[in-house]
């Protein structure tokens, strides 16, 4: 089953994945202190990013790559608020479970491993919106302010885009961690992924102000769909058909990366040697 099949799932099966989503949400609520720590870090780096990028804007004469002060601040705070949602670290419990052999327990359930992992992951990540994502955004609005689009459309499309970004970020990390079935030790791979993904998704500076060749290169990867797209849609940087096209690209990446993870799971199950007796 691929994530696209989830749409046509029978109700009893859908209930199982919904339960996993709720379980992820509740499980994450056990780590409230960590979420508050995350909030402090996100806000601190938000101010840092804002200071550097506004100075850059000023040096460039007020606008850069289509960003003015209000848009740039929207980029800063929306991207910081989304940090709790998207996984660009490359690490996931899955890689650890393969390394220790606990993956056996997951394979002994009548579930699609990828979809079960995604459900749990979405649950945990959506929880972080409450103590981390929304407060970051609120603090940004109250302190530096930001330009926001008017009318409901960008917000609705933005919400869809955020969900797609969270899903895509997980599916990519899932596929990466599945390689542990062959490699067992994947820490080097995870660090490389973190460096490439966090830069190319537009976490440090907007993809729109990359040098031309680098922007072209980055836009050939799924990474901008993990962060830049929802930020651009929510901040009103991309509107109308532009915004719609970006979201459709997200959908395409979800299908492609999801299919890759699905194929790796199928091949990996034949290869699986449960570690640790």
């Amino acid at each position: 089953m691929t994530p696209t099949d989830a749409v046509s799932m029978p109700p009893a099966a859908a209930r199982a994945y919904r339960r996993l989503l709720a379980a992820g949400f509740r499980q994450q609520s056990a780590y409230l202190a960590a979420a508050v720590g995350g909030l402090v870090a996100n806000v601190t780096f938000g101010f840092l990013k804002a200071a550097i990028l506004l100075a850059t804007l000023a040096a460039a004469g007020g606008t850069l790559g289509g960003y003015d002060t209000g848009r740039m601040l929207a980029y800063v705070w929306v991207s910081q608020a989304m940090l709790g949602l998207i996984n660009v670290s490359g690490r996931d419990v899955l890689g650890e479970r393969i390394r220790t052999g606990d993956i056996a327990v997951d394979f002994l359930r009548p579930l699609d491993l990828q979809l079960a992992g995604l459900s749990t992951h979405l649950g945990t990540r959506l929880f972080t919106l409450l103590p981390r994502g929304l407060p970051t955004l609120t603090i940004g609005l109250l302190t530096t302010g930001m330009a926001l689009p008017s009318g409901p459309a960008p917000y609705l499309l933005g919400a869809v885009s955020v969900l797609l970004a969270t899903t895509l970020a997980y599916l990519a990390v899932y596929a990466l961690n599945m390689s542990a079935l062959w490699l067992v030790e994947i820490r080097g791979l995870q660090v490389t992924y973190m460096v490439v993904a966090s830069f190319c998704c537009g976490l440090y500076i907007p993809v729109g102000i990359f040098p031309g060749w680098l922007e072209t290169l980055a836009r050939l990867t799924p990474f901008p769909s993990m962060l830049m797209t929802p930020v651009d849609v929510l901040s009103g940087y991309a509107v109308g058909t532009d915004a719609l096209r970006l979201v459709l690209a997200q959908v395409a990446w979800v299908v492609v990366v999801g299919l890759l993870g699905h194929l790796l799971t199928r091949a990996g199950r034949r290869h699986l040697e449960v570690q640790g007796g």
């Binding site: 009893a12 099966a13 209930r15 199982a16 919904r18 339960r19 996993l20 379980a23 509740r26 499980q27 056990a30 780590y31 052999g101 606990d102 056996a104 327990v105 002994l108 359930r109 009548p110 579930l111 640790g276 007796g277």
Partner: peptide
């Protein structure tokens, strides 16, 4: 299947919640 050295329960959740999730998984 019970593997004496591996857990199939949800570490941070109450025991009853693990049973509820498994009941949903097994329809």
């Amino acid at each position: 299947v019970v593997f004496g050295q591996r857990s199939q329960l949800w570490w941070d959740l109450p025991v009853a919640e693990s049973f509820r999730i498994l009941a949903a998984i097994h329809h």
